[in-house]
């Protein structure tokens, strides 16, 4: 898939994603070793985006499993379409009646019905959920398990089982083995500790806020119409604001939004009034906004 770490870097760049050396190395290893990648980091630094770009770059389909509290196997793996099965048995009542009409005994009738198991427990009545989809896919895919920390630990254990041999056993149908090993990306916001087993199984990648050079490049790439001087000013200001001990420091996606809105407002440089009026794009909590406003001189000191 990739020949070298450099190739990863170039192709991600071409897909408009600035991947640091570290990120490209991990992606390269994941592709080579067929290992899942567990990405941790603050919200909005491009964790999910990485998976999307990966699917772009490798031209594989993306299957996404969004985790939440209460997510279980039924919603992640597969579910029998009970209602449909029930409906079919109702409709076919007569046929079933015929089938067992001349059965001499009850056990005989039961075993005749049992002989028809296949009709009702087949893929026709199975609705595959993201995990099974990823495993049964005819073409190789990228599987994104988003915000795994939101799901319960039991689900994690179950996921681990799926990820370790990429096969699923459905009692009625037998074992389904993956035709292609999917590229798996898991993301976590660190709401809780993940289990050791899962961590052991995965390559670990921690994405932090980018350094100024990378961030500048990201902004240039995502907001190409931005004037050079403004881009520098935006990056300098955002980096300063992150140092202010806010409840939620602005992430990359927020600084992109901010840059975009500044461009729409036709700004050439940052001045205090402009920053104050657009600050909500960048900082989302009332208390944080107050803080930034209080430190505005410091924030804008080096942006001129």
């Amino acid at each position: 898939m990739f020949e070298s770490v450099e190739e990863v870097q170039h192709r991600f760049r071409a897909a408009r994603y600035i991947a640091s050396r570290r990120i490209s190395t991990v992606v390269f290893l994941a592709a080579r070793m067929g290992r899942p990648v567990l990405i941790e980091g603050p919200a909005g630094v491009g964790k999910t985006e990485l998976a999307k770009t990966l699917s772009d770059v490798t031209s594989r389909g993306l299957i996404r499993l969004q985790c939440y509290e209460g997510l279980d196997e039924g919603k992640a793996l597969y579910e029998w379409k009970y209602a449909k099965q029930l409906l079919y048995t109702q409709l076919l009542r007569e046929r079933i009646g015929e089938l067992i009409a001349d059965a001499p005994s009850l056990p005989e009738a039961v075993s005749r019905i049992a002989g028809q198991d296949d009709a009702f427990f087949s893929y026709r009545f199975l609705s595959p959920r993201p995990l099974l989809q990823a495993i049964r896919a005819d073409d190789p895919v990228v599987l994104l398990v988003d915000e795994i920390d939101k799901a319960e630990p039991e689900f994690e254990a179950f996921l681990l089982e799926v990820l370790s041999d990429f096969q699923v056993s459905i009692p009625e149908l037998g074992t389904v083995k993956a035709k292609h090993v999917p590229l798996v990306v898991l993301t976590s916001n660190n709401a809780r500790e993940l289990s050791d087993g899962l961590k052991r199984r995965c390559l670990h990648l921690f994405i932090d806020f980018p350094n100024p050079t990378d961030e500048l490049e990201i902004i240039r790439l995502k907001v190409p119409e931005i004037p050079e001087k403004l881009a520098h000013a935006v990056v300098a200001a955002v980096q300063k604001i992150r140092g202010l001990e806010l409840r939620k420091p602005p992430s990359v996606s927020e600084s992109i939004d901010w840059a975009r809105s500044l461009v729409i407002l036709n700004a050439r440089e940052l001045d205090p009034t402009l920053v104050e009026s657009t600050l909500t794009m960048l900082v989302k909590y009332e208390k944080d906004i107050e803080r930034v406003k209080g430190a505005l001189d410091k924030v804008l000191a080096e942006t001129k």
Binding site: V5, R22, T25, V26, F28, L29, K199, L203, H204
Partner: peptide, 23 residues
Amino acid sequence: AEVGLTDRETFKSTLAATLVKES
């Protein structure tokens, strides 16, 4: 073994990705 030892930064990221699971 996959990435080789030529680039120190890559080598370091490789070890970090495989060995360090807590940020």
